[in-house]
């Protein structure tokens, strides 16, 4: 699966880029909202993992834009729990709360793409 991982914490990004690559996914990493917007408008991804508090952008706008393109999203958040929440377009986004384990990340990815 082609995954875009948008997260401002570089250590977190480095670890999960490696882990997801070990799981057989192709991972592109970005550090802020601007890069996220550029990447998502120029390339097609099977899944986007997005930090809800990503700098330089309104994460809700990014999520809406991805929903409009029918791209599944896993939103990393400090609030709430892992579950699906319907967006305005009817596309469900999966919310994953910090701190999470690698197995919880895998479960969230599975839930998002189904």
């Amino acid at each position: 699966m082609k995954i875009l991982f948008a997260e401002s914490d570089r250590d977190l990004l480095m670890c999960y880029k490696k882990l997801l690559a070990m799981d057989g996914h192709e991972v592109t990493d970005v550090f802020d909202g601007v890069q996220t917007a550029i990447k998502t408008s120029s390339e097609k991804y099977d899944l986007v993992i997005l930090d809800n508090a990503i700098p330089c952008a309104d994460s809700d706008r990014i999520i809406t834009s991805l929903n409009n393109k029918n791209v599944p999203v896993v939103v990393l958040t400090g609030q709430g729990s892992m579950k699906k929440r319907a967006s305005a377009k009817g596309r469900s986004n999966t919310y994953l709360r910090f701190p999470f384990s690698p197995s919880e990340m895998r479960a969230a990815i599975a839930e998002a793409v189904h």
């Binding site: 914490d9 250590d11 977190l12 670890c15 882990l19 910090f98 701190p99 999470f100 384990s101 690698p102």
Partner: peptide
């Protein structure tokens, strides 16, 4: 409380992911 929470959350996530990489 929210700040303290947040300051711990990401580091714990990183440590957890790093340990899995080391184990693998």
């Amino acid at each position: 409380i929210a700040n303290v929470e947040n300051k711990f959350k990401v580091p714990l996530t990183v440590i957890s992911a790093s340990m899995e990489i080391i184990e693998k």
